[in-house]
Write a protein that binds this DNA or RNA. Structure first.
Lengths: 349, 349
DNA sequence: TAGAGCCTGGACAACGTTGTCAGATGCGGG
DNA sequence: CCCGCATCTGACAACGTTGTCCAGGCTCTA
């Protein structure tokens, strides 16, 4: 009769489906509440015989410590939150996994949320995580104003922004060298003889997109090439419109001979468009994509290391929690140009 | 002086960095504790004037409700756990996202964990999630014995297994038609004239791998083709060994003319091997892969819908929680053969 | 104007755990 | 034989929230 110790008159009903508590275990083992707590937490000062009795009761009842109560008492949840744009994006999978791996090494669980690039949803998620009292936050921001986090930061929630900087607050940031990467990628095309180079990227309100655009402009300017408006497509993001943008650039009476694409999704769409074209148009994409080496031509990309981004951020997060990290800083990870063929095609005009 | 209401003598120190509580808000607003609770939860019975005062205090102090305490009191965490194999795998990203989306629609957060295909780690993760009192679990099992979940199920933790069935317990399961998909894929190769067909798959202790192998055997048997041992490679999983396995099959004096691959990772590796081969070897792979249509030849695959898998499972989970779902059941989602070229190559012997 | 009924607000206990502290037990030495 | 000490155990409060219940003040009607 393990349940006789439960308050049967409780009207609120079977919360947790009537899970046994330490009290129940204590009653069954014939010991005090605190002794059970000691056994569960491996604290010293319990005779082997008592421990055995308690353990027996635990197994018999299927007791599992309620971490909510524990958290309430201890003040640490041993969990961190990760807010990103879209878990289904192949860029974020490895990033998320890297964060999880670091969290695991520190005994923490990971709570995950996708903002879908919506600043409001980002805030909603972040605040929900704060309400759960996660120990720390890794945020890939969608919005550009994070002052809503100020009370949280003040309250000691460790926070690291990844991939894009925080807006209007002073926080740790880990980003890639988006500017330099894009500049190198475009310079690569220029070095192979291209002058008329198209750029298709995301909304410039997204920091990475803006930086990559800046890199494109810088490379063009360095080479003394004036950029024409019709070469740039900004803010288109769904495949259909990217496709149209690319086709327009190529249909121009004086078309571009090369395209630089601002992220993996755009790159994939443009590859499809180019596959339908006979004229060889050069392509360099930001972000690596799977199987890029198997296409003909192979796709030249500016690769960033998503896992390194996540790992670095998570490590900084836990150093904040340790107290071994002092002032907020900005870390910039390098990108890498991987040549596979598409970026080395000569201009075809 | 918002902090004067805090117990300054508390020796345990600044847990949560001294976050304000409802008590603090109440003191500042000059109302009772419960009134603050009412405002925070949008409960009726508070005059607009009082509500305004409370809201003001909340904003001034940067108060955020502590959900741990709330959970302790209410018994529901409004969070569900998802244990999968590897978040970095492109198959699980969309699945995870789909689960998250359903959770979001039900106001729940998602806690994510990767088992890395290690049964022990799976159990560790699942039990950690149970200790947090997640309302429900979506599990892509690594192990084949889940009796350790019995106390949890009895305690009312909703549980749905995905992609692979639960071991030794009676639970809801959502899987793909692995057997039928593989059989159809192999039959497709047979229909295109192949007789000597290789199979490269994962360890048969993984249910999906075993089912796909069974599908392969069934298709061969249906066609009256005796299978030779050298055509099958089971349990190799890292790219290097998959590569060797494929090369051995092709180097045989009487080599296979087609290969059926058991999952996306194997498929990708085999594509690389075949790309180096001049002889046209047919290929059908289980799982779709990005850009498969852009390769030459395009890769014919047996596609499963990862998002549908996740969505279906999560929906069943919440129906369990609603109480609208009664007995555990097994749902099987169909697969789809997508022909793109590689599976339609004729035998080249 | 008094009583009934409604509305608002607050005191209190409880959720399950852990930290503190004091009591109980056993042992050895004076 | 008794005291002191070390070791083990348990009673109790607290963590921050919410559900219950009651008090007080108001309005409305007879």
């Amino acid at each position: 009769m393990p349940d006789t110790t439960r308050r049967a008159d409780r009207l609120t009903g079977n919360r947790y489906g009537n899970r046994p508590t330490m009290k129940d275990v204590a009653a069954r083992a014939g010991v005090g509440l605190k002794t059970v707590s000691r056994v569960v937490n491996g604290e010293p000062g319990v005779t082997p015989e008592t421990e055995r009795r308690v353990q027996e009761a635990i197994d018999a009842l299927g007791f599992r410590r309620n971490d909510s109560a524990r958290v309430l008492r201890k003040g640490r949840t041993a969990s961190i939150g990760l807010v990103l744009e879209d878990l289904a994006d192949p860029f974020y999978g490895p990033l998320s996994r890297a964060v999880e791996e670091v969290a695991r090494a520190h005994g923490a669980l990971l709570i995950n949320g996708s903002s879908a690039e919506d600043p409001e949803r980002e805030q909603e998620l972040v605040l929900a995580l704060c309400a759960r009292r996660v120990d720390g936050l890794v945020v890939i921001p969608a919005g550009d104003d994070h002052r809503y986090l100020e009370p949280e930061l003040k309250a000691g929630v460790a926070t690291v922004f990844v991939d894009r900087p925080a807006g209007r607050i002073d926080a740790d940031v880990v980003v890639c060298d988006n500017f330099g990467g894009a500049r190198d990628g475009v310079a690569h095309l220029i070095a192979h003889g291209h002058r008329r180079i198209g750029f298709i990227g995301d909304m410039p309100r997204i920091h990475t997109a803006a930086e990559r655009l800046r890199g494109y402009r810088a490379a063009m300017e360095d080479a003394g090439i004036p950029v024409e408006d019709s070469w740039m497509s900004l803010g288109v993001t769904d495949p259909e419109r990217v496709r149209r943008a690319a086709e327009e650039m190529l249909a121009d009476p004086h078309p571009v001979t090369a395209i630089f694409t601002g992220n993996n999704r755009v790159t994939v769409t443009v590859i499809r468009v180019l596959a339908e074209h006979t004229r060889g148009v050069a392509l360099v994409g930001f972000d690596d994509i799977e199987l890029a080496d198997l296409l003909r031509p192979g796709v030249t990309v500016v690769a960033q290391d998503a896992a390194a981004l996540g790992r670095t951020a998570a490590e900084r997060l836990f150093r904040q929690l340790d107290g071994t990290l002092l002032a907020p800083d900005r870390i910039e990870l390098p990108t890498r140009l991987i040549t596979r063929g598409s970026g080395e095609l000569p201009p075809a005009d």
